[in-house]
Design a protein around this nucleic acid. Sequence first.
RNA 1: GGGCGGUUGGCGCAGUUGGUUAGCGCGUUUGCUUGACAUGCAAAAGGUCAUAGGUUCGACUCCUAUACCGCCCACCA
Length: 907
Amino acid sequence: MDIPSKYNPKETEEKWYKFWEENGFFHAEVNSEKKPYTIVIPPPNITGILHMGHALNNTIQDIYIRFKRMQGYETLWMPGTDHAGIATQNVVEKKLRAEGKDKESMGREKFLDEVWKWKEDYGSTIITQLKNLGCSCDWPRTRFTMDDGLSEAVREVFVKLYEKGLIYRGNYIINWCPRCKTALSDEEAQHRDVDGVLYYIKYPIVTKDEGRRTKDDKDHVVVATTRPETMLGDVAVCVNPRDKRYKHLKESSVILPVLNRELKVIFDSKVDPKFGTGVLKVTPAHDPVDFELGVTHGLEPVNIMNDDATINEAGDRFKGMDRFEAREAIIDELKERDLFVKSEPHRHAVGHCYRCHTMVEPRLSKQWFVKMKPLSKPALQAVKKGRIKFYPKRWTKVYINWMENIRDWCISRQIWWGHRIPVYYCKACIQKSQIPNPKSQINSKSQIPKEEGTVVSKVKPEKCPACGSTELEQDNDVLDTWFSSWLWPFSTMGWPEKTKELDYFYPTDVLVTAQEIIFFWVARMIMAGMEFMNDIPFRDVYIHGTVRDDTGTKMSKSLGNIIDPIDVINQFGSDALRFSIISITAQGQDVFLSPQKFEIGRNFANKLWNASRFVLMNLKEDMVKRDLCQTASDPALSLADRWILSRFYQMLDIFSKNLASYRINDAANKIYEFIWHEFCDWYLEMAKLTIEEAHTQITIYKVLEKSLRVLHPIMPFITEDIWQRLPKEHGDKSIMASSWPHAQKAFISKKIDADMQLVIQIIQAIRNLRATWRIEYNKDVDVFIKAGKKGVVSSIEKCSTYVKKLARVSNISISDTVKKPSHAALAVIEDIEIFIPLEGVIDLEKEKKRLSDKLDGLLSELKAAEAKLKNKNFVSKAPEEVVKKARERKESISTEVVSLRKNLKLL
RNA sequence: GGGCGGUUGGCGCAGUUGGUUAGCGCGUUUGCUUGACAUGCAAAAGGUCAUAGGUUCGACUCCUAUACCGCCCACCA
């Protein structure tokens, strides 16, 4: 049988991937004969390129898909990408800017054409890369969140939720990214600790009743703020009603410095007297707490910022300045007017845009929201009742905690790329209607009144249902990308149509994802599944760790600490990447990567390749086409044969159990251990003795062939390549279409394991003696074994050929009563004694001399070490570490002396 | 402020319900080009499992506290 001496991953991977894809092995169809097994891919975004997180995530999914496929399930792995509204728009805008164009002058239609064109050109990079990784996705079913079908699902959901009163439009404080110029959801604003400054500013007091002022009262209050520029929008100052320090302010108002506006003093328990000075400036348009205060105290918000966070006309002479510029300018002015008290460093968490990392601005604006509380209830129940299980379990608590404190979801985005909100406004009706005063509606239980002149519809209505006007305009905003992703498990299968796919493949079996995405996606998918499918979207959620570099920092493009999976694939091969990353990722733990970690997989692939080469070089085709079960009863089977079969079936059992409990690294390491340290290190070496014989031929073939099948989900390419070179006793065209090995408990024998264990221990003991006594590696020795009480004479005798071969022994004498030969080396295993007579094997005199020379050297070293430690100056003055080391050194010398003396005695 | 994770030989990590000798990879030392493999083989050195208590016949494993590192969530301006 023909096999190259070097494994070439690149060539192999291309060849077999093409073979699998062309032969339709990835494709799943509704099949009533088989049970379905479904995974939906967490859709990567079209601007993305494959990173290590993807590599880990998709390797895990591919392992399960291949495993279940071999177990006879109809496996669907649904692939796709998401349109990543903000990210993609940013990328295309940047590209256009480089070409001297901008989206405003192009207009919406033309700009969107450009984005679609960009998507055609670059949007499938990641798909190609997933193929390089070996992913066996059902590519003909590939979906995109802006496909017609999925867009239809989005509109359907919007209308349904609106009609149920779960979608509303309102004026609230939202997170605003001044760079992307759009609203963000709470999840999209990522809190990061920032070294800020807390500024203390005087607000002069205007007292209506001068007579009530005492002499001690100051003529101002001091307000502490981290964002002085927002004072342009102040409408009040607020203190805690129980704060005695500020009782005198009851009838007063204060003057807003800089703008000289008169501000009310209000009292509210929301203010923490312990923070700053206990006086809060109230800026309803630019802070969520202040907004709430504004609502309860009936204050009209003053919006001071444009959409790019520059100051608008409400900021008077600061108009046009950037928010940070304005901050400086205001502080300067306050200092000039002696209204500035002090500033102190203040570390606090500030939201940042998750797409461009710009500091987000809390901003009052009119947006669309989803009311989440009603949706969260069934989703919470599904997890609490155990219908959906998290692995590792601890994420359950994180999920429940978030769900129980869920807040309304801001879903409108002021960008163009995405699903345009299916809402139409009738110009005539809107003019007639009054926009209601903002009330604190977030999480409120009351029904939200629908605005007049607003038509929510999947298709553009011909005319306004109220007044009949045809002047209808669609909302300019688009929906949050996650508003389409949360429907993914069913929208990809044709929902809202009742398709046979949905019926068969839904709910899916497992969702594999990273922790960052639990709130963005997992939680919302569960809510959507319960609401629209009336069923859970998946049964298991496996949360794997985050991929970090070897210093523990999260890998990210901006930090430049990326290890590109494609580089690793080019250098070591996809199998090596897959095996390595799986093997070092313990369940749910973060994984720290460095380039050399991928050598694990490369070396393993090399080992497997060479072992297979050895087998193929020695295999006789006509001898292996036999049934293993028939062979099992063959008395000719040797101890080694029986042992490796016993070990294989134990490994198989543990491997499957580990996969079932999402302990994938354990599974990977189990097969690694088996192939390398049992099959190669021991079985192949022993099999060399009887390689011509039928029992060895069949065993070696079966164990290799089955091991390849077990390893295939993790290392699909190399296993396919070797498998194809094996003699064909099976009709399968591909290993990926072959069946998973059946568990055969009958082959597992603890007795066989123990017998072999003894043989291995004896061989290791003899090798150890050979090394310590410096016996030339190719010199055969005689061995005397005194068997202990356990009566192992016959069992050792039976396998003495193994000992002879693997430990280079010419003669073995075993009995219960062997006497210690003179000048013999001794090893002990429990009550078994092993002797090697050294006369004639090594030069005894020379060895004696070598050892006593060494002993002399050690003794003088010991003397010196002892003297050093007796030196009081050294012990008291030298650093503790040094003294400790000296002590340890002394200890190790004395133990060496003891063993050397013992060995000398033997000579 | 709340929650979670980690602390195991020089380095990076496993250790599933508490049970004989705590494993793996890298690195180190020694020997080996042995007809599958030097991306390898053989042998070896190296750990009081962060600290202090507790439960138990028995604790790396369970409980309590402490320390350090890291992550997530959060409207103290």
